[in-house]
Amino acid sequence: MPAIRIPTPLRAYTGNQAQISVHGATIGDALNDLTTQHPELRPHLFNGAELRSFVNIYIGEEDIRFLNGLETEIEEDDALRIIPSIAGGN
């Protein structure tokens, strides 16, 4: 079963678990399963149906935006990671 690593600030919404096992054949399925298990995560990952611009999903070293986005297929033993891109401005 694929596992997703949760960034530190969002572990407050996963019972402080750093890693969550998920079901799904694609990244989109896996994120839907993750946010079904932990609904409070969803508004911080998604804006409507779209991933927030500063939220990046990696499979190993690969950013899914350079693969097939939420349609990217995943394998049972894939290690996924949610990595924010910090940004600020005035």
């Binding site: 530190t8 990671r81 990595i83 924010p84 891109s85 910090i86 401005g89």
Partner: peptide, 18 residues
Amino acid sequence: YHRYAMTPQDWARLEDEA
């Protein structure tokens, strides 16, 4: 002058370092 950004790799590296 009005924007700051760091890469996802920076985040991953510092999260692991922490």
